[in-house]
Every structure is written in C-alpha cells, then in structure tokens.
Design a protein around this nucleic acid. Structure first.
Lengths: 192, 192
DNA sequence: ACACTAATGGCACCGAGCGCCATAAAGATA
DNA sequence: TATCTTTATGGCGCTCGGTGCCATTAGTGT
C-alpha cells in the first residue's frame, strides 16, 4: 500500500502534455526523444520506461479504454441485430468529453496526419479489432479467429477511420453524425 | 537510348531474391541491411538507392502494378453495379501467376505476419486505396477525396487483407474463393 | 587520349531503442 | 540515528535504419 522506493520523477500525463506541445510547435518528426526528456526535466532513458516508443506517446493510455469498450458491447441487448449492436458500440466508444486534455481532435489529427503514426496505428488498433471480433464470435457461436468476426473488426475500424478523416477535414462537422453516415453509406453502397 | 555512365552493380530483383532468402532463414528482424548488402556483394549505401527502406523490400515493385489495377477498373462495364465492379476488380488484381518469384504466398506471409511490415503496409496501400477511390468517385460524380469513395477504398482493403489472412491460415484454401466469400459475408452481415 | 555521365560506396552523422548498472531517494527496521 | 530494502532514475555504450556528402569507378561519345 505504502510507496516504497524512490518516488517517480514524472508521469504519463506530464510527458504527454509536454510532448503534445512540442509536436504542435515543431511537428512530430522534428521533435526527438531527447528534446522531450530535456523539456520534462528527466533522463532520455526514463522516457522509454513510460512509453515503449515515440510512436506510442500520442496514444496515451489507449489500452485502458478497451475494457470500457468491452463493457459497452456486453451491455448490448441480444435481440438487437448484430450489425446495429456493433455500430452503436463504436459510436458510444467514440464519445469523448469535450474538455479532454490533450484535446481529442488534436490527438486524432496528429495520429491520422503523421505517416509514421498512421503506420503504427495498425498495431495499436489490433486489440480494438479483437474486442469486436470477440463480441461477434460470441453472438454467432464462432471463434474470434474465424474469418467473419475478424472481418467485421477490420471493416469497423476502416469505417471509423474514414469518419475521423471526414471529421478532421471539416471543422464544423460532428463526429457522431459522421460515424453514423459512414456506416450507413457503406450499407447503401453494398445494397444497391 | 544508349547506356552512358557506370553500369549498375545489381538489380531490384537480385536484392529481393537475396533478401527473401535471408528473411526465410533468420527472420525479418534478424537480418540487417548490412547483411543483405554483403550477401548481394554491394555497398550498404547502394541498397538504399534501390529500396527506400528495409520495409519496402518485401513489396517489390508493387507501385508498377497499380497501373494494371487502374486498367482493370477502367474496363469494367458501366452498367455493372458499382460494388460488383469493385469486387471483380479486386479479384482480378489478386490473380498471381503460380510461378512468381519470390512466391506470392511467401511474400504475403512475410508482410502479414511481421509486425513492422503490417504497420508499413498501411503506407504502401494508400495508393491502392486511392485507385479505388478515383474509380468510385468517377462513377458517382464525386471527388476522390469525398467520404464515400475513400470509405469504399478502405473497406475494400480491409476485406482483401482479411481474405489473405484466411488464405495463409489454411494452406489448402483458394485465394479467389476466399476473397469472394469475405465480400459476400460482409454483405450478409450488414443486411441481416 | 580526353571529356562526359551515371552509378557506386565509403564516411560521418543522426535518432530510436535497449541492456547494463551504479546511484538516488524513499520507507522499514533495529 | 544508522542501516537495510525497495524502486525509480539516468548515464553509458552499443546496434541498426536512414541520410547527406563526395571521391571514385566504369562505362560511352568525340
């Protein structure tokens, strides 16, 4: 319970705050881990104990939110059509408080507009897709490794990213509306 | 048309062949660019003139095939429903000669099973998605940057990757069949 | 023989990332 | 108070991907 040992010198939140400021000022690629460490007032080596890689910094504590995502899916009524249940869960997962820090828009813009982070995102999102695959598999009596559950996970991710791109491209738009429109338009496209 | 200047010391194909052999022997991560250069008998610096990065080696001359993909789409009859036209084009794009070298299966297994390459693939496939977006935009009288064309590109990619994963997981399966099944099962999923 | 051209490859450098380990700073114990 | 234990820090040195610079090589054309 008590806090033995040397106390921590920083925190994920502090590093994140400093890093986002620097990224905004100079751009992601132009900021080195040494820069961030100096600004935080901590050793470079220590940064790598808080974040596995520079690419992981913009993601913050994404992993932790997956439990919430699982919970949202678990709450879905079983009589709701599968595709609707998934769609609603994706919508709810992407409700973010307007005052989050750093701002959700800034975080997503960084991730979606920086090539190195676009690439890295496929690794970070693997677990998110698995959450969907698990749910779909459960509803259909399949394994999460079967093709359909995995496909639904991948396609849901592709749709969500498309919606985010639209959101970032149009400052006045509403993310929830775009997510819904994107999913509906895919249905129309496939059904025509 | 004559060939002035110092003659080339190697070729994309030779580098690719050597690299694939080493990757198979030791695994992608355990092979350094210096290893490949030594085996090819060329300077390390030269490798980076043939391939932008180590991650690009497994992709070979992927860019060149995009013109073929564009041509396939351009040939599609206009009265074919849009989703069917795209589906058929994706199928045809993924017809590979059985004797390609390195084998298509080995290439895709490397790309889809190596985390660093999974991540990098999102950058390589951006142009592929754009080809689809251009076609969809043309058929619908939209811009290629609009949401629906981009969404169709992303979703088509997600489906193709799912199909490839299934293909690699089941040695006896047929890629063309799996591609078709994956696309059809998504329609069922969304329509239920 | 001499100019021209284009590819090579060595060298030095940067930045991410990691293993190793000495050290700092706290609580616990005597 | 002095010592022990625990835990985080951070410096050092290394590997590897990647790049800019530039001298050198090996051809073709005159």
């Amino acid at each position: 319970m008590s806090s033995r040992g040397r106390p921590v010198a920083t925190s994920h939140a502090q590093i994140e705050a400093v890093a986002f400021r620097l990224f905004a000022e100079r751009g992601f690629d132009a900021v080195t881990m040494a820069d961030i460490a100096a600004e935080v007032g901590v050793g470079r080596r220590t940064l790598f104990r808080y974040f596995e890689s520079k690419n992981d910094i913009p993601w913050g504590q994404f992993d932790r939110t997956l439990d919430g995502f699982r919970a949202i899916l678990a709450e879905s009524p079983d009589d709701l059509p599968l595709a609707d249940a998934v769609q609603r869960a994706v919508l709810r997962f992407n409700e973010y408080p307007a005052d989050s820090d750093p701002p959700h828009e800034q975080r997503m813009r960084l991730i979606l507009e920086t090539p190195a982070l676009q690439a890295h995102s496929v690794l970070r999102y693997a677990d998110w897709r698995d959450v969907i695959a698990e749910y779909v598999a459960g509803r259909l009596g399949l394994q999460a490794t079967d093709t359909l559950p995995r496909t639904v996970g991948s396609v849901s991710l592709a749709l969500a990213i498309s919606a985010y791109e639209g959101w970032l491209a149009d400052p006045g738009s509403d993310l929830q509306t775009l997510l819904e429109e994107t999913m509906t338009s895919l249905r129309d496209y496939l059904a025509d």
